[in-house]
């Protein structure tokens, strides 16, 4: 613990990130450039989220880290251990006990409170990037509020597939101004973006930070005749029986048998501890 400055980063780096976070909160949905640092983990492992968390943590915090909803995957375990070692903060797997939650690609099922902060790891922060590769152009499009291209993209989804087939990283308009990429969360999670907690987004490789203050109006882009629909697999969780949670599909053998389980491991475990059962819960613990 004493070998590191609190939360790994040096103070000047944290000040730079903190200033970016304040401007990001003042202009919700706008991507603030910041001087992202090399972190002791590869790009794509959440270096943006780690830097935002490091600048946000205090010694009193309890940290939870999830990767696709799970607390026990390599990415989540590594980052949790990183902050245990460098910041000495308490960690937890229980959503309700955490004060700072760093997430990759999910919003927890349990409703977050105003005492919590949700930090997203973001791979590509620019929602227009796959439509327009030039940064100079996308920046101009944001400044002119020129988002027609995004609607054309959604329209092409409909003309090709009969529905808006974008299933994750579904674009949203923030507070009636900026179109924002909510990071690759499933569109099932989009309605939860209007929440009581502060949401911070960090993209390390792309060097951008953006934010959603609590209760900010977040609208998923759609059309009058093709309204936005949050979707999930049409099953109940096979372990806890939940019908309202986002599910992962797991192939179980070569015969094509499969099961569906909550992607949010803490939600599933909490439900099972209360006695909820699913289709396969009689079998051995998986």
């Amino acid at each position: 613990m004493n070998e590191y400055n609190f939360a790994y980063l040096d103070e000047q780096t944290k000040r730079m990130i903190r200033r970016a976070i304040l401007k990001a909160l003042a202009v919700p949905g706008y991507q603030v450039p910041f001087a992202s640092r090399e972190m002791p983990m590869p790009y794509g492992w959440g270096t943006g989220g780690v830097q935002v968390s490091a600048a946000t943590l205090t010694p009193d915090d309890t940290l939870k880290v999830i990767d696709q909803g799970a607390d026990d995957t390599t990415n989540a375990v590594s980052i949790r251990k990183f902050f245990e070692n460098t910041a000495g903060v308490a960690t937890t797997e229980e959503t309700a006990k955490a004060t700072v939650i760093q997430t990759r690609h999910r919003i927890p099922e349990a409703k977050l409170t105003e005492d919590q902060i949700l930090v997203y790891q973001v791979p590509i922060p620019e929602p227009l990037r796959f439509l327009e590769p030039r940064e100079t152009e996308t920046r101009k499009m944001h400044s002119l509020e020129e988002y027609g291209l995004m609607h054309v993209k959604l329209y092409e989804d409909i003309s090709q597939h009969g529905a808006i087939s974008t299933a994750y990283a579904y674009p949203v308009k923030v507070s009636g101004r900026y179109v924002m990429d909510p990071s690759p969360i499933p569109k099932f999670d989009n309605p939860k973006l209007e929440m009581d907690a502060i949401q911070l987004f960090g993209a390390g490789r792309e060097q951008r930070i953006y934010a959603l203050p609590p209760h900010t109006k977040v609208v998923s882009l759609d059309f009058e005749d093709y309204p936005f629909e949050p979707t999930k697999a049409d099953h109940a969780c096979d372990l806890c029986g939940a019908e309202d949670s986002y599910l992962d599909e797991v192939i179980m053998d070569d015969a094509g048998n499969r099961m569906f389980v909550c992607s949010d491991t803490d939600y599933c475990r909490t439900r099972r501890a209360r006695g909820s059962q699913g289709r396969l819960s009689k079998e051995d613990e998986i």
Partner: peptide, 17 residues
């Protein structure tokens, strides 16, 4: 490092709310 972290959290909270 510790006092600035607490101060920033308060500053961030009021800017967010």
């Amino acid at each position: 490092p510790i006092e600035a972290a607490h101060a920033f959290r308060a500053a961030m909270t009021v800017m967010a709310r």
